[in-house]
């Protein structure tokens, strides 16, 4: 490759990249297109041009009450994320700014809890939820997802906090800031970007969590994962409607995801790749 990249090289690479990108994106694109078709159109063979009806979206809402699982998803994913942040911020903070010899071990151990396969504890969790009346409840699912994602949240925050130079905190103390002032004027403003991307990424993870949400809910607290999974045995052909429901289920998180793609890498690799 010469330093001055030839236009031809760039055009070739562009065409190749776009073809790959469109193939990968195609299933999503086709779902969106199908959602705008009528039911007969949807099964009438390959076509990229829908008649442009919004009928399916209305039907999904009126017949299957889409709004309810949607709200469940919002409450559970946002709720569990905020709860996890509240618990995780102080500990990530402590580990980043007052590390001890054991800090690394604690972090490692936290990550190891994430590796416990969910199925291994399905039975006891299911029984406990049943006995405490938490099955099919928003609170139950929120607590569940909080616990599941807590290690990741601690880790992500830790990697962000660790990048705040300790000297700045010392400078604040020399400047006469008390602990509270240190937190309000110096730490929080500097930590906000890291907290925000942790929040974003964790909402995405919680929104898409599809084991516990499906197993521990039935109707009342069922979020979109469970709602969509209930379409798995199609009675009659309803693909256009299914596409509409799918589109609505993934659209909010897809858009959030586009915004967080940069943080995604460092977040999900625990800072190992930046």
């Amino acid at each position: 490759m010469a330093r001055s990249v030839t236009t031809r090289h760039k055009v070739t690479a562009t065409i190749a990249a776009w073809i790959v990108a469109l193939i990968i994106f195609f299933p999503i694109l086709y779902t969106i297109i199908t959602s705008l078709k009528t039911e007969p159109e949807a099964i009438a063979g390959f076509s990229l041009i829908p008649s442009g009806t919004f009928e399916n979206y209305i039907t999904v809402q009126t017949q299957r009450d889409y709004f309810k699982p949607f709200m469940n998803s919002v409450v559970i994913s946002v709720g569990s994320t905020i709860l996890a942040l509240i618990i995780a911020i102080p500990s990530a903070w402590a580990m980043a700014f007052s590390p001890t010899r054991r800090t690394k071990d604690v972090l490692m151990w936290m990550l190891s809890t994430k590796m416990m396969p969910a199925v291994a504890v399905l039975v006891p969790i299911y029984l406990m939820f049943r006995d405490f009346g938490l099955l099919d409840s928003r609170i139950g699912l929120t607590v569940m997802l909080t616990l599941i994602n807590l290690p990741i949240v601690v880790w992500m925050l830790y990697t962000y906090f660790r990048e705040i130079p300790g000297e700045i905190l010392e400078a604040a103390r020399m400047d006469g800031a008390g602990l509270w002032q240190e937190i309000v004027y110096v730490l929080t403003p500097m930590a906000v970007p890291g907290i925000a991307s942790t929040l974003l990424l964790n909402i995405i993870l919680a929104w898409n969590e599809a084991f516990w949400t499906i197993r521990l809910s039935t109707t009342n607290a069922a979020p979109l994962t469970a709602f969509i999974a209930s379409f798995s045995s199609p009675q009659g052909l309803f693909w256009a409607k299914l596409s509409a429901a799918s589109t609505m289920a993934i659209a909010p998180i897809l858009i959030l995801g586009w915004f967080s793609q940069k943080q995604l890498v460092r977040g999900l690799t625990f800072g190992a790749v930046k």
């Binding site: 760039k10 776009w18 994106f25 994962t225 969509i228 798995s232």
Partner: peptide, 26 residues
Amino acid sequence: PIFGQGIVRILIISPFFVMPPVAALI
């Protein structure tokens, strides 16, 4: 170097944000 790098990236990253049941059904 390609034209429209940003959009290509967005298109390629998208499937990751699709919840498993939807991905499977699609």
